[in-house]
Amino acid sequence: MIEIKNLWAKIEDKGILKGINLTINKGEVHAIMGPNGSGKSTLAQILAGRETYEVTEGSVTFKGKDLLDMDPEIRAREGIFMAFQYPVEIPGVSCTYFLKSALNGIRDHKGQPPLDAMEFLAMIREKMDLLGIDQNLINRAVNEGFSGGEKKRNEIFQMQVLNPDLAILDETDSGLDIDALKVVASGVTQFKNSEKSVIVVTHYQRLLDYITPDFIHVLYNGRIVKSGGKELAHELEDQGYDRIKNEADSALPVEESIA
């Protein structure tokens, strides 16, 4: 599905990613964990096409195509979706209109005819029921005045409607109470199948109780310092990130390993 090779990125003069290597196959769920400031969110944002970051080295191949070469909308149309950590409020634009524009943009890219208003409504109604999304919510402006939980739920709802091949959840669990967390997790569980891949970026192990990952990677100081199966989450839960930090810090200093 996606192959990230030796990815280096910076913002202004600050290096953030320092040689990420990661391969995700179809049907796999990968969790990316790590302490604050390790570069987890940066990685998610770069995959979605955020231009604030400058990729200085490396490559990302998505379904055989050069991802880094694509504009954000092309990435979305090719099948990448990122659930935002902080979904943006867009006053004056209704959720329905927004989602219909997005969906028809993707359909057009795939050579499919646009859905008319009736077809679109029928289609989203089904997804709304699954996530328990209120009709009023989608008539409101995108994320405007939404509670934290509503915003996150709206992200998962968008994911279900747009039906990407690779979903990236950027700290979708942050700020959620346990009930909202369960709704989000069940949305992801409904979504994933043998053709879809998911990247779950999270600080906490909590979400992984509901979305079982096939692999867990620990990101620290811009590199993946440890990878393992789902049991790694419990290890981190018990011991925190300190042990991994110490191990990594005592290994070759990252900057010098390159020079």
Binding site: G49, D71, A76, F98, G105, I106
Partner: peptide, 17 residues
């Protein structure tokens, strides 16, 4: 960026905003 990351092209996103 939010609009574009959902598959809406630059021109349309501009018009929407």
């Amino acid at each position: 960026f939010y609009l574009r990351s959902r598959g809406i092209d630059y021109k349309s996103a501009y018009a929407i905003l």
